[in-house]
């Protein structure tokens, strides 16, 4: 008897896939609706995409999101890479270190966001871009760490031993042997950290400070003001960007070792 023998598992799976993807498809279809009301379908058009491209507040928000994501993902990837190299072999306290590294994954984001807000305000740190980059870096670390760690686990120590036997010093071994093998994992980790930062709403919402927005924060306040075809168009763009990046990361993670 194989798992195939259980009734309705296939039907449920297809239903779940529909549940996951139909709303997204509806959103994308509606983003091409020419009608202003966003409810009545008239004919297909890319007008709204044109509008969001020239909207200065959307441009500013998108630029902020990009800057934060690049800075936070780069910092998180560097920190995660170092940490992954350190936790490669077992040592006393490895379990505890990994628990700390994965802490941002377990804690509810709203709790960490308001706690960080309290810390920054009490220290007199100015809210805005810098505050958001710092907070994003912290929660991006586990997203960068896990793929790097997974890749590292698949690399046998024999390559490094061989390099060592051939008189390569530690730096040279790292640069010429470990890093080339590890590279797809690092890129996968960076991509996931980048997507996580780009899509983050809650942390930015609390730490943006007055007059500063990111794309998700802009979308949230726009939705609060009412459904509009512009929101559909930006949302569709954000969805497509995330899906492309995650597929890239998935592909990188599966590159032959």
């Amino acid at each position: 008897m194989s798992p195939r023998r259980f009734p309705f598992t296939r039907e449920t799976a297809l239903l779940v896939l529909a549940y996951l993807y139909v709303p997204v498809a509806v959103l994308i279809v509606y983003s091409f609706n020419a009608n202003r009301t966003a409810t009545v379908w008239t004919h297909a058009s890319v007008d709204w995409y044109g509008r969001i491209l020239v909207n200065p507040s959307i441009q500013a928000a998108a630029w902020n999101s990009l800057v934060i994501a690049v800075c936070a993902a780069t910092a998180a990837t560097v920190l995660a890479l170092l940490a992954a190299l350190a936790t490669r072999r077992a040592f006393l306290g490895r379990g505890a270190s990994e628990a700390v590294l994965n802490m941002p994954l377990i804690l509810p984001e709203i709790v960490v966001a308001v706690a960080t807000l309290i810390l920054f305000v009490s220290l007199g740190v100015k809210l805005g871009l810098g505050a958001m980059v710092a907070a994003h870096t912290a929660f991006c670390i586990p997203f960068a760490y896990l793929p790097i760690r997974a890749r590292l686990e698949g690399i046998s120590g024999t390559y490094e031993e061989a390099a060592h036997d051939l008189y390569a010093n530690r730096v040279r071994t790292f640069r010429r042997v470990t890093m080339p093998l590890l590279w797809p994992g690092v890129m996968a980790g960076f991509t996931l950290a980048f997507v996580t930062s780009l899509d983050d709403f809650l942390t930015s919402f609390f730490l943006a400070g007055p007059g500063m927005t990111t794309l998700p924060v802009y979308i949230f306040s726009a939705i609060r003001a009412g459904i509009s075809p512009e929101i559909n168009a930006i949302s569709a763009v954000m969805l497509v960007v995330s899906v492309l990046l995650v597929s890239l990361s998935f592909f990188l993670g599966r590159l032959r070792r």
Binding site: L20, F201, I219, I223, I227, V243
Partner: peptide
């Protein structure tokens, strides 16, 4: 695995907004 994972990486706000459109 990819199909199940992708929604997790897309924007939570946007995905909930999609339901707002469907149920409004």
């Amino acid at each position: 695995l990819l199909l199940i994972t992708i929604p997790f990486w897309t924007n939570l706000l946007v995905r909930n907004y999609a339901w707002l459109i469907i149920l409004r």
